[in-house]
């Protein structure tokens, strides 16, 4: 019976208004969540109740209390303060990595999509080489060469997402370039650069912004994973992944050491995912972004 419902829905009746309403809900939800997280991260020095790196022996593995709402860790450090500072590092690394990647990918995708032929082949095939290795393995390879650290992790993440972002930009450029107003602009004698900058780029940006938001969620998880392995952000700087690694041996006695940093990652990932979904419904109805 339930199978029937789908089959009978020959044409989905969604009005543009309904679509706009659902996209606004995701955009507001994701945006607000992300805004709160960003404020928490930026204002961490003001908000953190304790010094995140201060070792207090008598507080070792203290349960959550009024003074330490998230408890304290193996070295007696305040988990809440460390989560706030860790969020700062995680957001900084993942957002800057995706931002750098987008800034490089946009012109590459524009060129490939606009000029096609050998320009496209050269750019696309070169970027494809990055996809030879799975993302995590490539990140690890980078770190194997350049040594561990947040900056290297950010660089690795930026490189990994370059082919994905460039491919999305290329596809949306291809679609926009076929439009009449672009053909018209060329026919009126506008140069390539002018056409790309003032006609193609503004209209082709939607999907890549969507993709960047979605990838930020993955970047966040990747950064946390690398730090968990001890290959990302290095101690004593607090990082969410690093905290999860530190508390592994005391998991059963002091679960708060593991629960709160993990929840922080999940909330941040959800914020980016919702934002990406809202942006997708608003700016990428054709589903060019992956």
């Amino acid at each position: 019976m339930s199978v029937q419902t789908q089959l009978e829905r020959v044409a989905p009746i969604t009005t543009p208004r309904a679509r706009r309403r659902s996209s606004t809900r995701f955009l507001l939800g994701g945006g607000a969540l992300l805004g709160v997280l960003a404020i928490l991260a930026i204002a961490a020095p003001l908000l953190a109740p304790h010094d995140p790196e201060a070792v207090v022996v008598r507080e070792v593995l203290g349960a959550p209390s009024f003074d330490h709402p998230f408890g304290s860790d193996v070295l007696g450090r305040d988990v809440l303060s460390r989560v706030l500072y860790g969020l700062r590092v995680s957001l900084l690394v993942s957002v800057s990595a995706v931002l750098v990647s987008t800034i490089i990918a946009v012109p590459l995708g524009l060129l490939a999509g606009y000029f096609g032929r050998w320009v496209d082949t050269t750019i696309s095939r070169t970027l494809d080489m990055i996809l030879v290795l799975p993302a995590m393995l490539l990140a690890i390879t980078f770190i194997a060469i350049l040594g561990p650290g947040s900056a290297v992790a950010a660089l690795a993440i930026a490189v990994i997402y370059l082919p994905i972002l460039a491919r999305v930009m290329r596809s949306s450029t291809l679609i926009v370039t076929r439009n009449e107003f672009v053909v018209g602009a060329r026919a009126r004698g506008a140069g390539h650069l002018r056409v790309i900058v003032s006609h193609v780029a503004p209209n082709a940006m939607g999907p890549v912004i969507v993709q960047a938001s979605v990838l930020s969620a993955f970047a966040l998880q990747l950064e946390a994973g690398l730090s968990f392995l001890g290959l990302g952000t290095q101690p004593p700087t607090p990082s969410l992944g690093g905290m999860l690694s530190d508390g592994r041996d005391v998991l059963v006695q002091a679960p708060w050491v593991e629960i709160f940093p993990g929840l922080a990652i999940v909330v941040a990932v959800l914020a980016f995912t919702f934002l990406g979904e809202g942006l997708r419904r608003a700016f990428d109805p054709k589903g060019v972004a992956e």
């Binding site: 419902t5 009978e8 829905r9 020959v10 044409a11 009746i13």
Partner: peptide
């Protein structure tokens, strides 16, 4: 489509 019963649920 009404003869075949193939109209959408709406």
């Amino acid at each position: 489509n009404a003869v075949m019963g193939l109209l959408p649920g709406t």
